[in-house]
């Protein structure tokens, strides 16, 4: 079975990624216990590093990450050392799984809403610009779509807040408490992708319009609009579908910029901060989380492909 095979291939992929991420974060200078205030004596820092096994060689720390270390105890017995993947060096009161368990649903909700916004705006925009190719709605629509991919998110966010929250008082300025709080961040996050989708869909529509079986349908005398709707859309959606995999992986794992501007307790800030703070295990955990999401989403994408396009088959 094709999909089962794909999933088994994912395991070595994840191993390589974890090793790579582990090596990368350990390469960066500084450690998780560097503080503005120096410890009262060098022994304290040494103790701290030893307590979290940061004084071990990196390969051993990597094995420890997965709980693959056995140590000879004082009594001469070998005993299993607990895995370290669930420990955060920076937030020592929390388990990584608790942090992810709390922050990921928030990011996923926001990501799903942003995805909805991106599709809801991008697909119609792509359709209109394709159906009216060469006319002013096409130019205006295409311009908007490109504009959306050109403005940095850290500019869009504050502008939306200024207009809709501060000036018009329609929506809350920040925080994550009610559905109303979700609207602005979802738009700010989804805007870039809506432009991307509009462009992809327009392209797909134009390609589909030239393809042979649309010509055949046209010969059968079906009306132009209906024709586009019925047949072209099915094909034109394919590039959008294949882009959806990586796009969703990005959206669902949160955005540093949006979470920072709107003060949303999501997982996106942890991606950046864990790397900046040398919170090794969290950085690697999140890299793995991202990779797993990507694998799963790409599988879903390929599965949808077989349903959408009868020409595609996986053996």
């Amino acid at each position: 079975m094709y999909f089962a095979r794909r999933l088994t291939f994912a395991i070595p992929l994840l191993l390589v990624i974890s090793a790579l991420a582990f090596a990368l974060v350990h390469l960066a200078p500084g450690g998780p216990f560097d503080r503005e205030r120096a410890p009262a004596s060098p022994e304290i820092e040494r103790n701290l590093k030893a307590a979290y096994h940061l004084d071990e060689p990196v390969w051993k720390q990597y094995l420890r990450f997965f709980g693959l270390v056995w140590q000879k105890g004082a009594t001469g017995h070998w005993h299993h050392e607990p895995a370290s993947f669930n420990i955060s060096y920076k937030y020592r009161s929390h388990r990584v799984s608790d942090i992810i368990g709390q922050a990921l649903p928030v990011s996923m909700t926001l990501g799903a809403l942003a995805f909805g916004f991106a599709m809801g705006v991008g697909l119609p925009l792509g359709f209109i610009t394709a159906a009216r190719r060469g006319s002013w709605p096409d130019y205006a629509g295409s311009f908007l779509a490109i504009l959306a991919v050109c403005v940095p998110g850290f500019v869009v966010g504050p502008l939306l807040i200024l207009v809709f929250s501060v000036k018009l008082h329609w929506l809350p300025v920040a925080l994550w408490e009610s559905p109303a709080h979700m609207i602005l961040p979802a738009i700010a996050l989804g805007l870039f992708f809506s432009g991307k989708i509009a462009r992809l869909f327009r392209e797909g529509m134009l390609t589909a319009a030239q393809s042979e079986f649309i010509a055949a349908a046209r010969a059968k005398g079906l009306g132009e609009n209906l024709l586009l709707l019925k047949h072209a859309v099915r094909i034109a959606i394919l590039p959008v579908v294949s882009f959806s995999g990586p796009m969703l992986a990005d959206l669902l794992t949160g955005s540093f910029v949006i979470e920072n501007i709107f003060q949303i307790p999501g997982i996106g800030v942890f991606f950046i901060n864990s790397a900046l703070n040398s919170d090794y295990t969290v950085a690697v955990d999140l890299a793995l989380l991202y990779a797993i999401l990507l694998v799963v989403l790409n599988l879903i994408v390929d599965f949808s492909y077989t349903r959408l396009d009868p020409r595609v088959k996986y053996e």
Binding site: A28, P246, L286, Y290, V295
Partner: peptide, 24 residues
């Protein structure tokens, strides 16, 4: 396969480490 692996690694981790490490 190498391309696949790099695709699945969040690029920001790579960039942060590159800039801080090589800078040092």
């Amino acid at each position: 396969r190498i391309v696949d692996v790099l695709y699945s690694l969040p690029s920001i981790i790579f960039v942060i480490v590159l800039i801080t490490t090589l800078g040092g």
